[in-house]
Structure formats: C-alpha cells, structure tokens
Design a protein around this nucleic acid. Structure first.
Lengths: 154, 154
DNA sequence: AGGCCATGGTTGACGCATCAACCACCCGTG
DNA sequence: CACGGGTGGTTGATGCGTCAACCATGGCCT
C-alpha cells in the first residue's frame, strides 16, 4: 500500500547481502563437514554436546529450553537419535508425563570424537579468517542484534 | 588423535556462540514472517526476486548459478513453484536439454507484494538494531569470511 | 471431591535441502 | 560417422524444521 516503500540504501543493502551470503556459505560448509566426517547432523551435534555437558542425563523440557528449540523439534530429533542409538529415553518417576533423555555410551563416544573435528573446522573456516578485533566486533554486533530481537514483537 | 585439541579461547568462543545464536534467531524470525505474511518460503522469495529482476525469464542453469544453489535444489524448488503457479517451464529451442523458467503473472504479483513487506522486516529486525558503522563493519567482516572461504579447500 | 487450565511431550503432514544416481542431449576428436 | 565426455536437468530417498492438533498428567481453586 505504501507508494514508495523505504528500500534499503546501498550501504545497508551491501551489509545485509554480505551477511546473508556469508552466513549461508559458512553454515552450509560447516554442516556438510560435520555431516561428512562425523556422520552427525548439526542438530545431533548440538543436542549431544549440550546433553553431555550437563552430565548426560536431562529432563526433556530442560534440554529443549537449553538449546532454545521448540518441543516438537526436540521430540522429533530425540526420536531420530534414539533410533540410531545415540540417546535413550527413561520415564520420570516424579512426574508421570515427564521423560529423561540420556546419552548412551555410543552417544558419548560419538560426541567426543566429533567435537575436536568440529572445533577444528570452526577455526579453519571462521576464526582464522578474522583478527581478534574483528571477532570481538562481530560478537558485539551479534549481541546487539540479539538484544534488539528480544525487544521486538514477533 | 590429538591429545590436546586446540579449543577456542573464551573470546573466540564468545564471538562464535554469539554469531551462531544471532544468525539462527534472526533468520528464523525473518523466514517465519515472510512465510506468514506472504505465504512464500524464503526460497520462493529469492528465486522469484532474482528471476523477475532479470526480466522474468531465464535459463534454468543461469538462474541456478545466480542464486548459487545446486541444480537439484533448484529443480525441486522450481517444480514446487510450478505446481503452485508461480513460475512456468518452457523448452529451449536452441538446446534440446535446456529449459527456460518463466515468472507467471501470479508470480510477479506475489513478489511485488512480498518485497516491501520483506524489506520492512529486514529493516525492523536487523538494520534498526545497528548503526551505520556497525553495518559497515559487519559487511567488511562478512566479505573477509567469504573471501577466506573461497581460498579454503572444501 | 470436582473442574480446569497449565505443563510435558507426541504425532502426522508438509515443505525444504542434500546426496547420489540417472537420463538426454551437445560437441569435439579420431 | 562413432563415441566419449561434459553439460543441462530430473528423480527418489532420506533427514530436518514447522505447524497444528492432540493426549496425559499435575496442580490449583472452590
């Protein structure tokens, strides 16, 4: 309805385009590497990482909140991982609805093997591209955007 | 194999975590908004945008290269979009294998309606969070990472 | 006790992305 | 002409993410 929508100015456009392109390529490459040399999806990776960091046994919803996912996503994810033997589910005695999700030995082994490879790729593809000042700047910028998002409706 | 893998130092880790978190939330929110108020996926959006920018009619592979996708992805995407009437396919007379992909009137209308809404969300969620200097910094950083990625194997 | 909403978690359908295999046609070379 | 390799494009299987609906239990309030 707006006859002259407020398009981005060239600098804004350049920043946005560059960011999008970079983010797509970087994330894409990283997840394909993880997949290829750990036989794990990024989702598998982060779930196992957070889960084992927390001792390898957690309530479903706690884990879900920890990684900031919605429950349905986690439910599907855990189901797939359970089928592949990376985690198990146990009933919660205190709460009839609840479930614990538990890293299996295979799961622990998988993440311990994957983690150093993963960090090495992060370093190679991302960290090594930038100076520490640039990293700091990016960190600050990211946090500003995050803070902004939380104040924003929707 | 490495007894003491080179973990990231705290500043590096902070930058990486912040970036990842920001990127996930931002992209997630933006694509849900696009979906919700244009009934289009981000993939639909970018394909239609690039296609109409280029006049609304392009060879399949040219379009694929333009958006930097792999052909199978584009093939599936175009098939879905064709089914929904956003684009059409035409045979290429000069090259028996080739295909033109063409924006339909419905496709043009859809993108023209979606574009201002999209840019408004980009502005609201991202641009408005940052100063012009920060945008410039992010743009430079993105380009450095992109350049680095291109030199990197894999 | 009964009723009600919130919480914890699952399910199914659907669209998207990737991989690997495949088909069809073009073109250069012998 | 044949044939071999490269290009253009499709297909099917599989896993991931979202949405909406759903079920079961728990906790509160009267």
């Amino acid at each position: 309805m707006n006859a002259t929508p407020r398009w981005l100015n060239p600098e804004q456009q350049a920043a946005w385009d560059g960011f999008i392109r970079m983010q797509e390529k970087l994330i894409g490459r990283l997840s394909r590497r993880v997949q290829a040399d750990s036989h794990m999806s990024p989702a598998d990776y982060i779930v196992l990482a957070k889960l084992t960091e927390a001792g390898g046994r957690m309530r479903f919803m706690d884990l879900t909140k920890l990684v900031e996912w919605e429950k349905s996503r986690m439910s599907h994810q855990v189901a797939r991982m359970a089928k592949r033997g990376l985690v198990g589910k146990e009933d919660c005695p205190d709460d009839g609805r609840g479930a614990f999700i538990v890293a299996t030995p295979a799961g622990r082994e998988a993440i311990e093997e994957a983690a150093p490879v993963h960090v090495e790729h992060v370093r190679r593809l991302f960290i090594d591209a930038l100076t520490q000042e640039e990293l700091d700047a990016l960190g600050r910028i990211s946090n500003r955007v995050l803070a902004h998002l939380e104040k924003q409706p929707d």
